[in-house]
C-alpha cells in the first residue's frame, strides 16, 4: 500500500503501515470493548453463579457456581417461555405493520400528488423526538376510558374498545412503537426514493407504465436496501420491548412483571435481587437477537443482490 512515506525495512514497514489506522480506530475500539463486549462477557460469567443463604436467611449469603442451572431454570420456566412467545408474537404484529406504514407514507408523499408534503413529513417525524417512556405515559392516558377522548367518542357511537385487555394489549403496545418510529423510518425511505434518478421514471412512463406499475416495478425494487434496513432495525427494536409494557403494567391485568424477557430480567435484577438469573436472561435475549438478525440477512441476501 502507498500509505507509508519511508519504509526502510520490511519489519518497520509492517508496523508503520498498521499504526496510522489504529490511531483512528483504537479510541472507539477501546470504548466499544469496555461498554459493549465487557458487559456481555460479565453477563456470561455471572450467569453461571447463584446466591445462597441458610437457616432463617439473616446471615450473609454465599456465591456458588451452578454452571448452566440459571439457563435451564429460565428456559424451563413456563413464565419465561410465555414471555418469549409473546415477544415473537409482538414481532409478527409489529414488523409488518411498521414496514408497511412507513413504506405507504413514503410512497404517498413521493408521488408528488399531495398538498403540503413538507408539513406532513415534519408531523410524521415529530414523535421520534418523544422519549418512549413519555410516549407511553401519554398513550396510557389515551387507553383509559376516564381520560381518553377517543374511547369516550367511540363509546358514544356504541363501540366499547378496551385497548388494554389481554387480547388487545400487544396491539396497544405495537401502536405506541408505530407512533414513535413510523415517521423516522419513513424519512429513511423517502430519502431513498428521492435518490432514484428521475430519468428512470420518465423512461417507464414513455413505455406506458402507470403509477402502480411504477411503484411495483421500479420504486420498491430500487429502495429494497432501505426497506431491509428498516425491517432489521424494527426487528431489533421489538426485541428491546421493555419500557412500554413496564409503564403500562400498573394499568392493566394483562401485563405481568415478566411480560417480556427484558422485563423478567429487570425484575430479577432489581426487585428480586437475583442478578445471576437476570444475566442469564439477558444472554438469552442477545443470542436470539443475533440469530434473528443473521437468519433475516441470510434470507434477504440469498434472494438476489446483497442488501446490507
Amino acid at each position: 500500500m502507498a500509505f507509508t512515506r519511508d519504509t526502510p525495512t520490511p519489519g518497520v514497514r509492517q508496523r508503520t503501515r498498521l499504526s496510522p489506522a489504529w490511531g483512528f480506530v483504537a479510541p472507539f475500539t477501546v470504548m466499544f470493548l469496555a461498554f459493549y463486549l465487557a458487559p456481555i462477557a460479565y453477563a456470561l460469567v455471572d450467569s453461571l453463579f447463584a446466591t445462597k443463604s441458610s437457616g432463617l436467611g439473616f446471615g450473609p449469603p454465599q456465591r456458588v457456581f451452578v454452571f448452566l442451572r440459571n439457563y435451564t431454570d429460565a428456559l424451563s420456566s413456563p413464565a419465561f417461555q410465555a414471555s418469549l412467545g409473546r415477544l415473537f408474537l409482538f414481532c409478527i404484529i409489529e414488523v409488518p405493520l411498521m414496514v408497511a406504514t412507513a413504506t405507504v407514507l413514503a410512497l404517498l408523499l413521493e408521488t408528488g400528488k399531495a398538498l403540503w408534503p413538507r408539513f406532513f413529513r415534519v408531523v410524521y417525524f415529530m414523535p421520534y423526538g418523544v422519549p418512549g417512556v413519555i410516549a407511553t405515559l401519554l398513550w396510557g392516558f389515551l387507553y383509559i376510558p376516564a381520560t381518553s377522548p377517543v374511547l369516550q367518542g367511540l363509546k358514544a357511537i356504541g363501540i366499547g374498545l378496551v385497548p388494554l385487555s389481554s387480547t388487545n394489549v400487544l396491539f396497544a403496545i405495537a401502536n405506541i412503537s408505530l407512533w414513535l418510529y413510523a415517521g423516522y423510518n419513513m424519512i429513511i425511505l423517502t430519502a431513498a426514493l428521492q435518490s432514484i434518478p428521475t430519468e428512470i421514471y420518465e423512461a417507464a412512463r414513455i413505455d406506458g407504465a402507470g403509477e402502480w406499475k411504477l411503484i411495483w416495478l421500479i420504486k420498491l425494487p430500487l429502495i429494497r436496501g432501505s426497506i431491509v434496513l428498516v425491517t432489521l432495525f424494527t426487528v431489533i427494536g421489538t426485541l428491546q420491548l421493555f419500557v412500554e409494557p413496564l409503564v403500562l403494567s400498573p394499568l392493566t391485568t394483562a401485563i405481568s412483571s415478566d411480560f417480556t424477557p427484558n422485563m423478567a430480567a429487570y425484575a430479577n435484577a432489581f426487585t428480586k435481587n437475583n442478578s445471576s438469573v437476570a444475566a442469564a436472561m439477558a444472554v438469552i435475549v442477545a443470542i436470539i437477537a443475533f440469530a434473528m438478525s443473521y437468519i433475516f440477512l441470510r434470507i434477504v441476501n440469498s434472494k438476489g443482490r446483497q442488501a446490507w
Binding site: F35, Y36, P39, I40, Y42, A43, D46, I236, L239, Q240, F242, N262, A265, Y266, A269, S275, A278, A279, A282, V283, V285, A286, A289, F290, S293
Partner: peptide
Amino acid sequence: MVPATVIALPL
C-alpha cells in the same frame, strides 16, 4: 444488533 436492554443490566 445487540439490544441496548441486554447491555444495560450487565453494565
